[in-house]
Design a protein around this nucleic acid. Structure first.
Lengths: 208, 208
DNA sequence: TAATTATTCTACCTATCGTTAGATAGATTT
DNA sequence: AAATCTATCTAACGATAGGTAGAATAATTA
């Protein structure tokens, strides 16, 4: 009992060999969930790709539920930290619009090219049984808080519309997962286009 | 061989008793797929709710694939016809913006309160194996064509961006499925809010 | 070296999945 | 009345799912 198990920092990766194995399994699971959905991915699939037999997986994660929850929570943590870091890098006097554009870019980056966790989260959230969805809600609310602050200046008149507006923005960004081919799309251009649609006026009042 | 089997009109519902049964099964399937996802709904679930044993289902649909494809295609057909009808009801000289707002309202209506088919389609499309997704693509493209026409005036400068803009709009509308509680949300207000975000300028250039 | 812990293994369980075979009852047609 | 068609049934198949028991190996510590 010599070793004091120091409180694990969520994002200091792989301090021990066991931790590295756990992260490797999570990586594999996230990639499979992202591309094939929740129910279609079996514990056998994940174990095989990790080079082990199925029951060995249960040494690292006590159930499929625990495994998927770990992927889901990490998915939100990744995008939240990515966006927060990008905002922190801005000059402190940056206005509402550059802050929004910066956050939008960071979100798309986390979603499309940083890892499989955030995309897996967005893809399979709606497929999960309600108990698993509820487990991910605290993380999600913490992330929404960032966007509430960012979008508050666009809702000056009616703050009651703010939660709905947050949902519209996050929904529109996440929807790009459904149709963007990450290999063939310029993410910078996509971010600019989304910012234009969401923040600028699209139509001069030509017609009636 | 007396009866000439006249070509079935896709949308004349329930001319025969057999057709009615088939539509009832489709209704049940759509509702279950919408709320619980594709893989989580078994043929047994659908059969039980239809008041029959599982194999009897196979008299009406030769496989789960056929059943889900029927639901998916009908889902797009419903929203396409709803939007087309709403646009046809406008005066012929209506401008781009009222046409967009009208289409947006009709789309949200089909998605949230008209039936379970369109919402089922949006919910489970990403969960389907690729072959089933491909089967639904012709319907989807036909629907996208409507929005291409609607959005072309907003893309006058760069028509090359039009397909991406269509995807952004449809994606933003469909994303409301993830967070809107249809019982407690005023769809009219939601449509206005979405139109405001997507079509009007949100920010005066206050900041940098 | 001996004891202990960490990790993976083989073998198997029960439940559920989509689907098929083949019989049957009622309705319709010849 | 005989034959056929419609719609459902009972019974079961092979495949695969998540998960467990308990032995065996590899690494670490006493």
């Amino acid at each position: 009992m010599a070793q004091t198990p120091l409180a694990q920092d969520e994002f200091r990766p792989a301090s021990t060999a066991g931790e590295a194995r756990r992260l490797q399994i999570l990586d594999i699971a996230a990639r499979h969930f992202r591309t094939r959905g929740y129910a279609a991915v079996s514990m056998r699939d994940i174990a095989t790709e990790a080079g082990m037999r199925t029951p060995s997986l249960y040494y690292h994660f006590p159930s499929k539920d625990d495994l998927v929850i770990a992927v889901m929570d990490r998915g939100i943590a990744v995008v939240r930290e990515t966006v927060a870091a990008a905002l922190d890098a801005l000059p402190p006097d940056a206005g509402a619009k550059p802050r929004l554009v910066t956050a939008l870019r960071a979100h798309l980056h986390a979603l499309h090219s940083l890892s499989d966790y955030t995309s897996a989260n967005v893809r399979i959230f709606g497929q999960l049984p309600e108990a698993l969805r509820r487990a991910n809600l605290p993380e999600r609310r913490a992330y929404q808080a960032i966007w509430s602050e960012l979008l508050a200046p666009t809702c000056a008149a009616e703050q009651s519309r703010l939660p709905e507006r947050v949902a519209i923005f996050i929904g529109a960004m996440n929807a790009t997962l459904e149709w963007v081919d990450p290999a063939r799309t310029d993410l910078e251009a996509l971010a600019d286009h989304l910012a234009q649609v969401l923040l600028d006026r699209l139509l001069e009042d030509v017609g009636a």
